[in-house]
């Protein structure tokens, strides 16, 4: 598996898009920090970018890679390698190279700016960790779409739809249902609804750091338990992990039974 990972990773690291992605983040980091000169503001802007853009890039990259590396996959399938290794290796290669671009693209300008001396380092690290998780999750979801859809146009459509749903539509439905049922206790509902969408989950995780003052304004006991203690952080992190592991597990499960 490590060999496949290595080749996928090298292959991607050499592709133009990895550079574009890396340079985009590098540029973004520098612009945010050196034009603004304000770490707190940069962290907030970054959060908006990370929860929207990272899933999108992860999805698009993941689906593109799957369809484009079909021949590579078939070449590998005839080799004495278990399928699990082929697909896990490719997945980790894509997710790894994307995470690499994200972490280093943003990390370098922040380190140059003097992040280690700033007290925003925890916020920033949290941002990067969440970004890494989102990359892994959405790449895995994209792999799932690709592996279940032979038709690339269809697969691509589903992938974009998935992103749109998770990033925007879901929250719209969420808001509407909250307002419609406002007479009922909604604590549990809203927490569960948050946990079921990795984008919302990551956003909440960052909110716990950036906007804890506002979150504590709400009176609900369950909310308070969730946001006021470390329980929120732990549960959110566990759910993110679940969101990563389950799709990855499904990749392997489907791949083992698929005909090529």
């Amino acid at each position: 598996m490590l060999k496949i990972l290595k080749y996928s990773f090298y292959d991607l690291m050499r592709s133009r898009w990895s550079y574009v992605y890396f340079l985009f983040y590098l540029l973004l980091g520098f612009v945010l920090l050196f034009l603004n000169n304000d770490v707190s503001k940069a962290v907030i802007t970054l959060m908006n970018i990370i929860i929207v853009l990272v899933p999108l890039i992860g999805t698009i990259f993941g689906i593109m890679y799957c369809y484009n590396s079909k021949e590579f996959t078939e070449l590998l399938l005839a080799q004495p390698i278990p399928r699990r290794s082929i697909f896990l290796g490719q997945y980790l290669g894509v997710a790894g190279s994307l995470t690499f671009s994200l972490v280093f693209g943003l990390g370098i300008p922040f380190v140059i700016y003097g992040l280690f001396k700033s007290n925003a380092i925890f916020d920033f690290t949290l941002l990067l960790v969440t970004g890494a998780f989102l990359t892994m999750i959405f790449t895995a979801l994209a792999f799932n779409i690709a592996i279940s859809n032979e038709n690339r146009i269809k697969g691509f459509g589903y992938a974009v739809l998935l992103w749109l749903f998770m990033a925007v539509i879901y929250d719209g439905l969420f808001l509407i249902s909250l307002i419609l049922f406002e007479e009922y206790p909604l604590d549990n509902f809203s927490l569960v609804a948050t946990l079921l969408n990795p984008v919302d989950l990551s956003r909440t995780l960052i909110l716990l750091k950036l906007d804890i003052s506002a979150l504590l304004g709400y009176t609900g006991a369950v909310f308070k338990q969730f946001f006021g203690t470390n329980a929120g952080l732990v549960i959110s992190a566990l759910m993110l992990l679940m969101w990563t592991v389950l799709p990855v597990w499904r990749i392997v499960f489907v791949a083992k039974r698929k005909d090529f």
Partner: peptide, 15 residues
């Protein structure tokens, strides 16, 4: 067992 087989696929498309 695949290590005992050499396979030449029909369409030679590589990464």
């Amino acid at each position: 067992y695949r290590s005992e087989i050499n396979y030449m696929p029909q369409i030679a498309d590589f990464p």
